[in-house]
Write a protein that binds this DNA or RNA. Structure first.
Lengths: 176, 176
DNA sequence: CATTTATAATACACTTGTATATTATATTTT
DNA sequence: AAAATATAATATACAAGTGTATTATAAATG
């Protein structure tokens, strides 16, 4: 039995699939989703140990990145690929904790600039090293070349998904 | 400039990263997360066109897979890697639509067996072919060998994440 | 056999996501 | 300049995820 067959059967067991895969493409897709679920599980349990959610950690990372200028809410939403309404609530709760602050843009008064605060920076600087310390274990079974291969293949996968998403986006507009 | 450098810079632009990556591992991780976000975006907009959510589609797929026997709620939660409480609400809403039905297990009266109904099967048989029809486009840039490479690399990635998750799980139990 | 412990489902409060409507402000068009 | 259109943030209702507590039942133990 070759390696791919073994991997396929292993995945089949792990996701309790009670049938054959319909194609190799489905194997890859379900393997990708299964891998994401493992990673998501990690994030959902890791960050709350520091009193924040995974979504809040991501916001802190981005706002630290843009600590000189701050960032508008809709830009945050766009980067995180979430709805604009959703980021509002996250910022609300983080503002209550005083990890971020909102500041009206004087040039475009519709916009808020969101800034990370000293308290936010302090929290991030506590969490971030522990977060980065997970990386060696997470990538223990992938050497540098394999990491680069994975990078290339993920990029190719995205290139396939992108046009589908474009079609779905356009399809949202009914003909007028 | 070599291919990896190009891919790295492209990713940096796509996720609006305003700094250098701290390591190749971080590049791979953020590429993986970014790819997931694209795929999630797809699912969040595709399935509602058929009147269901992506979570509900996954439940229908699993229950069809186990249509002979049905499946207990906690098994569903385990396969989908979500909290048991969470699957209850999903089943509630699907039961209202009469896509699934609950049946008390006479042997273990704590358990519900959840079954897909004829209406659920009818819905799934409408959605599934359209869903599978996305695959050729999604994998258009990955030939069979590349798909197999991706499969192997994802498996290796999971092998790194698994022990971290085990540690996090054990860490939940305070010493008594 | 009675009691303790474990498990399945559910209820509750909360966070984060969705879509859509509203309000304030900018921008474009006439 | 005035009117129409677009955009940023927010409000609302809902779906689905989290953890924790409760209840019913099963399994293990004294």
């Amino acid at each position: 039995m070759d390696e791919i067959t073994k991997l396929t059967k292993k995945l089949q067991r792990e996701i309790a699939l009670n049938r054959d895969f319909v194609s190799q493409e489905e194997v890859v897709l379900l393997s990708f989703v299964h891998t994401w679920q493992q990673l998501e599980w990690l994030g959902k349990r890791f960050f709350p140990r520091f009193g924040l959610s995974d979504a809040q950690f991501n916001v802190l990372m981005i706002l630290w990145d843009y600590r000189e200028t701050g960032m508008r809410q809709h830009e945050l939403a766009s980067i995180l690929m979430v709805n604009r309404a959703s980021i509002g609530g996250v910022i609300d709760r983080m503002e209550k904790q005083q990890w971020v602050r909102r500041q009206r843009d004087p040039v475009d008064r519709r916009s808020n600039y969101v800034h990370i605060t000293p308290a936010g920076i302090a929290l991030l600087e506590k969490v971030r090293p522990v977060y980065y310390a997970l990386f060696p274990d997470a990538f223990a079974h992938l050497n540098s070349n394999q990491q680069q291969d994975l990078l290339k293949l993920l990029e190719r996968f995205r290139q396939g998904i992108l046009p589908i998403n474009k079609r779905l986006k356009e399809g949202n507009h009914e003909p007028s």
